[in-house]
Structure formats: C-alpha cells, structure tokens
Amino acid sequence: MQNKLISLSKAVEMFTRDGMMYASGAGLPVGSESIVFGREMVRQKRKNIHYIVHSCSQQVNLFCAAGVCDKVEAAFSGLEVYGFANGVRRAVETGRVIWEDWSNLSMSLRFLGGALGWPFVPTTANIGSDIQHKSAFQPDTFPCTTKIPEITDPFTGKIYGALPVVKPELAVIHVTMSDVSGNAILLGTEWGRFELARAAQKVVLQTDYIVDTACIRQYPNLVRIPEVIVDAVIPWQLGAWPQCSVGVYDSDEDHMNTMNRLLGSDEGCAKYIEDYIHSWRTHDDFIKVVGKANAQKLMNNVTSHLLAPYRSWIKSDGEITELMEQSLFEKKGSKT
C-alpha cells in the first residue's frame, strides 16, 4: 500500500481546477465535512465550481458567499438549528448561484448509481413533487420531463421516476481517522460518504487523525472507505471546524453563528476570508485562529469515549511529519 499523505495546499493545487464538478462531505450541515479543504480552495481562488453536495454545510455557505461555485446540486440548503445559510440565500436569491434541488435519499441514490455504473436509478420518491417538475437548470420548462423522467416498471406497468446518476470529478471527504494509504474509519453517521467515495473519479480524504495500519487491521469491518479508492490523504486535525467531528470535537456554536452572520454580506464575507483563511498557512497557526483553549473545550465533549478504542494507534505530530516525507507525493515532488 502506498503512503498517500499530502499537504493541504498541494492537494488543492493538484486535485482541483476551475469549473470542475466537485463534491464534498456527503456529511450534514453540522457534522463531518471537509471544510478546511474548502478554505484552501478559497485561498487558491478556485471559481466556477459545479458543486455536488448532499446537504448544505459551512463549506457550501462559504463557496456561495465567496463566488467559488456558480452551480449547486443538493438536497438541503440550511444549517439545521443554526438557521438559514446566509451566504447560500444571498447567492440564490440574486441568481448568482443556480441551485438545483434534490432530496436526501435521491442524492445518495445518484451517488450509488454513479458508483455502480448504472445508467439511472429508479426511485419511488420525488415523483409528483416539484423536485421532479421544476429544474433550476431548465427554468423555462414546466413541468420538466428531463430532470427525473417518468419510467414505467417493466414488470407491473406502474409509473416511477428515473434519477440521473452522478460521478463527480473529485470528492473530498472528511474522516475521523485514516492510515497513510487511505483506509478510513468514520465515527458517527457515515451519511452518504460510503457511496460518494465510490461514485467520484478521484477521492481525497481530510482526516482528523492518522493511525497506524495495525489499527485498521484490528477493525477491518469498520473501514467503510478502503485505500483502493483513495488518491490522497490530508492530515488536518479540526479540519471540519466549526462543524463537529463525532468522537473528536463539538460544533463551535459561537463560530457557526459568527461565520453565518459574516457570510450574509459581501463585506462580511471579505472580512471572514481575511480573518479566518488568509490569517494562517500552517496547522499550528490554524489552531491559533480556532483558539487553543477553544479547541480544548470543543474536544472535551459528550462523545469523547467513542475514540477510546483507537487512541493507542494515533500518530503524533512528529510521526506525521516523518511519514509525510516518505509519501508518494513528496517523492514525486522531489524529482521535479
């Protein structure tokens, strides 16, 4: 198995491009999501992204506010109890971002179909609603007959819907822990990460912890994303901040609200990018931005016990630095 560790900035440079079909998370608005990867995409000024995402998150909120994406396909655009996502609302209500609506199951089924190489996925939901009849990508057609076309069950003659499958060019997925080659264990709900990881053409993991492969061999049943489908692994503790990573840290209530408030205006968004993206380059500086005491507080939470079985295999910062030097990408980099 190859060592696929990569730095955050190099991963964004290598794996993303303007105008690409990019997918993230397949987490939910408060939970595991590859937010630090999104911050780096903002720093590297990616644009015209066609964003495929299961549900909204602060990454979606940031991309809409900062003009990183111009098309989104998703099932949900809010931040649950944290309220409406202000960056998303502003972009959609002004027409800056075209938002195509699906539902939570249909996004997962579209990933599943993409993963299996199916031409389409039959569905018993979405039909009869405006998720079927309205397409933001084809606004002049109502009822739209090409977004979720009606199909007839060849066995019973009943009418159902056909969901188009999706195979994003890249999926960046937040995981709790991974070994250096990308065998990953996800604490908390995996939500749509299993099928997204298999639908995408390339997969980059953003992980809170690097663990020894001995840990993976101890719990192979729990490895829902295996290294065979993973291209690169970014070690970045607290990478889902201000959202939560079950077993590791809580969502940061203050920052969830501050971030959402600032993303509600162009000036606020510019300030957010200045204060929370341009203000750090290294992980140490990132932690200073989160606040060391705040990070400690977030990591002392009601799910900490879930990490107990894995703690002895977690690599230290020093060990990760050494492992990074042996990675595939560093070796390649040294040749050029």
Partner: peptide
C-alpha cells in the same frame, strides 16, 4: 426567498 429545500 430561498428556504431550506427538502432534506429528507
């Protein structure tokens, strides 16, 4: 006015 969409 954009609301939240379907979710599940």
């Amino acid at each position: 006015v954009r609301l939240n969409g379907s979710g599940g």
